[in-house]
Design a protein around this nucleic acid. Structure first.
Lengths: 97, 97
DNA sequence: TATGATTGTAATCGAACGATGACATATATA
DNA sequence: TATATATGTCATCGTTCGATTACAATCATA
């Protein structure tokens, strides 16, 4: 899943927490933060502290990765040329037994 | 590249920035933050603001992803019940020809 | 080697954080 | 349906943030 905003990240944290059957208080305790902090982050708090966010991801066993090998964007490979005439001719031949 | 700490993330940001030939001031301006903020983040500042970090990653075209498909760790399949008595008896029988 | 560019450090200030505690609201369970 | 549990909101406080400015140190270039 691609993370583009604090909301994306918050949703990932909340979904995973629920998957694991934890409540916010339990997660907060594991992180070493307050329950209020967990509420905020899950709701997409942009000014949350990076270190605590990373700790939450670690506790929840959510691997976070950056694609460090990203090359400059290239255009998709061109599609093979399509020979429309050949296709039309083949269809015509099929209709003339 | 797996991100486990603010330092990992800071290094990714710095490496990519250099790849793109930007200086810290230019990146800061693009993010809408101060050069001091960029310096701090690149050096692994744990209390950096999540929203600004995500913005930096976006500016630098670094995709950030979480592995949302990770299943909860499950316990290994239970071992078959071991019949200790049967094993002991078998050993006893072996010792009495 | 001198100079310019870049990165790093320090001080200051207003804003807002995160922790704590309490209460309100929503959801789950018996 | 009543009750327990979980989540959300609000107020307060000490701490630290991020922006700004200035100077120091390091690196790159001519």
């Amino acid at each position: 899943m691609l993370i583009r905003s604090p909301s994306d990240l918050g949703a990932a944290i909340r979904n995973r927490r629920r998957e694991l059957g934890l409540d916010q208080a339990a997660l907060a305790k594991s992180i070493g933060a307050s329950r209020q902090w967990v509420i905020g982050v899950e709701r997409g708090r942009a000014r949350a502290e990076l270190g605590l966010v990373l700790r939450a991801l670690d506790i929840l066993d959510i691997p976070l990765s950056v694609d460090a090998g990203t090359k400059p964007k290239t255009k998709p490979a061109a599609l093979p040329d399509v020979d429309i005439d050949a296709i039309v001719d083949a269809a015509r031949n099929k209709r003339r037994p």
